[in-house]
Design a protein around this nucleic acid. Structure first.
Lengths: 127, 127
DNA sequence: CTGGATCCATTGTGATACTG
DNA sequence: CAGTATCACAATGGATCCAG
């Protein structure tokens, strides 16, 4: 077993960042929440190609990871709002860097990715 | 069908960046290739917790995406080298930004991620 | 309006063994 | 040394239905 002597400490920041961003709609959700779209139904309308189920799952993960905070208003009908935490806001420049790189090199990437499988509906949202 | 009128153009850079970095060992491979570790067997020794198969698959994807170039020397025994392309090098600052964010916020992230599933052996490599 | 449960298809990754 | 084939399993995400 390779891991016998390896510390459990997570030493690589890239892995952590990939982990919190892992999930098809996480960056999209962060984008819209940062823009002020905060309620589940609004997010659902903003991202119609994702199902409620997946949106809920990924919102829960974002909350668990501390990137967003969820506020529940005990009403009828129920009302829920999400907003970015400080941690979530600190991630925005990193996402911006990723977006800039992808935008700058889209021409070089598009043909290969189109052939080998980026679903087009994902890309049309500015995340 | 939502996509009826949606252009196939991939408009969001984040999706492109996530795509080329998608795969458990891609950032690790880029890290070591950038450091000058270029031969498959060396990469295998550098990342012993990944199997040859997965390393080959992800190296092939990196090559298809244009981030690395593969050079085959027709010898016996065969010799292969990888090196970063310009596109691959242009991605390094983005990876660095991801690594920095993860490093800065490790304390806030570690407990949650440890509980919900980052395998420890991944994190110990500085990617 | 919110969110969970179930079922299912696809994909990513690991274990192993094999070929040139 | 380099690369591939096959089998197996876990995780992701989509469709649909149900509940407070």
């Amino acid at each position: 077993m390779y891991q016998k002597k390896i510390s459990r400490t997570l030493e690589c920041g890239v892995v952590l960042t990939k982990e919190v961003l892992h999930g098809k709609w996480k960056s999209t959700l962060l984008h819209f929440i940062a823009q002020g779209v905060q309620r589940p139904s609004s997010l659902q309308r903003a991202i119609p190609m994702a199902t409620r189920r997946v949106l809920n799952i990924q919102l829960n993960e974002l909350e668990q990871h501390g990137l967003v905070r969820k506020t529940v208003f005990p009403q009828l009908p129920p009302k829920v709002e999400y907003h970015l935490t400080g941690l979530g806001q600190s991630l925005l420049p990193v996402i911006a860097a990723m977006e800039q790189w992808g935008d700058e090199h889209r021409a070089e990437l598009e043909q290969v990715l189109a052939a080998t499988g980026v679903p087009p509906e994902v890309g049309v949202l500015r995340v």
